[in-house]
Design a protein around this nucleic acid. Structure first.
Lengths: 204, 204
DNA sequence: TCGGTAAGTTTACCGAGTAAAGGTTGGGTG
DNA sequence: CACCCAACCTTTACTCGGTAAACTTACCGA
């Protein structure tokens, strides 16, 4: 893959991603071909695949950043803070600043709409989710202070977070007020982490 | 899709799936083409896709049965049994009888090996996982006795179960003794449900 | 000046999946 | 019996994502 050298590689990659994103948001992911993206970016089809492994990555190329968020949260927490608590603080911080990765940034609706409308994209999203879960489990394993079942902890954390995120996306696409969504999102995050800490309420 | 009438449809489907499975286990999922499966089954490529939506479904065609297991468990539980408890009993029962869906049936290693070796198959498996989660959430919603966050409950249940299942598969492929695997599997299931009920231990 | 190397191009190909239109067979109905 | 309908399957042709390989271009450092 390119992107290592200093002669245009990174710019080309950025240009391809930008144009692809524009086309996808405009016409839907499935209705834009790689050949079109390549032509619009003034580049050959092969070059597109030199920069991105899969078509879906043209839109989701920022998602791997989540790994860093997770790793940093675990690694740089204070001594008296548990791993789960560190993750909790990290995702709440992202939500509070309406970081793009939180899904709460302004104007994200077209992106979210495009994402939800495409089976290929949602499938790839689940793939990322699983990668992040594995990453988190590995980080927990490598952490000398963590005691417990790292795989189970990682799986429950990611699942809980996703549940809350899905509801937030639903409300964004329903056109609800962003401030209300953000507030409800944070409340639901708190609630989800509470459930993780104390167990499911016996309701059924 | 065929399979409704009584003239050969179901047999043809079964024959295709059987031959495809054989080929996949023998040579790996990615190294067998649909054209080969079709030829070996004495059928055209189009007919294969008339019976199965995707290539992966040729191997995973029994997986949708899990939905029925879940639905039945929720729906036919006794009055004094909670929904989560009903699921717990159902999966423990499957494990106890080494039901094929539990992954504990004898001789399943080649199947599991083929599954794990293929990104396309594992991805499809995650897709099923998510469908089952949605199904479970819907069942909980429809259940008059259940109180709580159905989406969160379903997500945590499925995530917890998967974690335990993954470890079991790992041990099967490592060649451990099946009886030991089954015993450990049941113990880990109990432990996972305990965590769901009482929360993650504060280890980190 | 020369050669190495990263980036991109052309060409050719593979395999999954779809569309369309037509052929075969059996079962039910006038 | 003759006929037709419906289900099943076929052939053909196509689209699109993705890969392989060999060639070009341009910078960069010795």
């Amino acid at each position: 893959m390119p992107n290592r050298g200093d002669r245009g590689g990174a710019q080309t990659r950025a240009r391809i991603a930008a144009i692809a994103t524009e086309l996808f948001l405009e016409r839907g992911f499935e209705d834009v071909t790689i050949a079109e993206v390549a032509a619009a970016a003034g580049v050959s089809k092969v070059t597109v695949f030199a920069h991105f492994d899969r078509k879906e990555d043209l839109l989701l190329d920022r998602l791997p950043d989540v790994r860093d968020v997770v790793r940093t949260a675990i690694h740089e927490r204070a001594d008296d803070v548990g791993a789960v608590e560190a993750i909790r603080r990290a995702v709440l911080a992202l939500a509070a600043q309406r970081h793009p990765l939180s899904g709460l940034s302004e104007g994200a609706e077209p992106f979210l709409r495009t994402l939800i409308a495409s089976p290929a994209l949602t499938s790839r999203l689940r793939g990322f989710e699983y990668e992040i879960e594995k990453e988190l489990a590995a980080d927990l394993d490598a952490d000398s202070r963590f005691r417990g079942d790292s795989a189970l902890t990682a799986a429950l954390l990611v699942a809980a977070y996703r549940t809350v995120a899905v509801e937030m996306v639903r409300r964004r696409l329903a056109g609800d007020d962003l401030a209300e969504i953000a507030a409800a999102h944070q409340a639901r995050l708190e609630r989800a982490f509470e459930v993780l800490a104390t167990g499911l309420p016996n309701g059924g």
